[in-house]
């Protein structure tokens, strides 16, 4: 079995539920050791795709490989290498935290002294040490998420699939959980993270796939997507000391790479298609023609803007 550098490979994946095409011909790769965001609105097909990757669902067509193993033909091998945390974390409410972890250690064939050391490492990493004797049903949502993450780590998987891990968490728990994910990446794990809370993903994701209505609309690193999306153009917002007159638009139209966008009081904006260093010519001309520049802001496309540009918000 070939172990590719790509830890997760998805090719032409399609899943249909009756008349609804939940996932339509989806393809993407996830390299080792990165945090890959899987972004899409509710009902876009994220969870269905994740269920196929996690060997819980048989696709209608296409294929998925985890560490080079096909999820259909070698599900047992895939499960050994994969830790899955579903969107709705189910816990055995009668068990204590230590019993819960002990159970999942046994289901992962971790016995004896190895079990002890692995559980102690996992507990330390997820900071569950003080909660070991607590009953699972007495834990807060954030603690349960950490507990579920802990159980996915017991067998030392190479790939972690986390489906909406931050949903329903308070800001503090979100930050703690984000730090935990970054720590896991530092330890060499690959993390495949689905979410529709973009502010959670943008600071930590190395690459993303954006899915809408079952189709991948963008795939790659944030920088790559940004470049591709805006086709080399940048938007500038300028604040003048005094509100400009209608002659400003005529004046700016003389620049070949500039497209005037709008004015609003003392502010105006334009799109620049030329090289970034050439835009200084615009500032010089404006100054020499009596316009006093009070401030300049270049708009960067963050994940939210990219997401909004690429998706229509429609669900199936």
């Amino acid at each position: 079995m070939d172990i590719n550098s790509e830890i997760l490979q998805v090719r032409n994946l399609s899943v249909r539920f009756g008349k609804v095409q939940a996932v339509d011909n989806v393809s993407f790769d996830v390299p080792r050791g990165v945090i890959h965001g899987f972004i899409g609105p509710n009902g876009a097909g994220k969870t269905t795709s994740i269920r196929v990757i996690s060997t819980l669902q048989v696709p209608d067509s296409g294929g998925v490989w985890v560490c080079g193993y096909n999820v259909l033909t070698h599900p047992a091998e895939v499960r050994k290498r994969l830790g899955y945390m579903p969107d709705h974390v189910g816990v055995y409410s009668g068990l204590s935290v230590s019993e819960y972890l002990d159970f999942f250690a046994l289901t992962r064939r971790v016995y004896g002294t190895k079990k002890k050391s692995v559980l102690s490492d996992v507990v330390e990493l997820t900071d569950l040490g003080d909660l070991l004797d607590r009953e699972v049903n007495s834990l807060s949502k954030g603690m349960r998420q950490r507990l579920c993450l802990a159980q996915t780590l017991i067998h030392e998987p190479e790939l972690l699939i986390l489906d909406e891990p931050a949903s329903g968490l308070d800001p503090r728990a979100r930050i703690e959980f984000r730090d935990l994910i970054l720590e896991l990446r530092r330890l060499g794990k690959t993390i495949f993270l689905s979410s529709h809370i973009l502010s959670e993903l943008s600071p930590i994701c190395d690459s993303v796939s954006i899915i809408e209505k079952g189709e991948i609309v963008a795939n790659g690193t944030l920088t790559e997507i940004q470049k591709k999306l805006v086709s080399g153009s940048s938007t500038f917002k300028v604040l003048l000391l005094q509100a400009p007159g209608p002659e400003l638009e005529k004046f700016l139209s003389e620049f070949p790479h500039l497209r005037f966008l709008s004015t609003e009081g003392k502010k105006f904006s334009f799109e620049w298609n030329g090289a970034d260093e050439d835009v200084s010519q615009v500032w010089k001309s404006l100054s020499s023609n009596g316009y006093v520049l009070s401030g300049i802001h270049k708009e960067e496309d963050d994940l939210e803007n990219i997401f909004m540009s690429l998706t229509t918000g429609e669900v199936q």
Partner: peptide, 27 residues
Amino acid sequence: GLLLDPPGLPLQEQESGVHLSRESVRP
């Protein structure tokens, strides 16, 4: 429709860059 053999090249190499369209590629 099910694909069983491991895919050869990674998606990025086959597509020479980022994939950014609604039409999926069949590597």
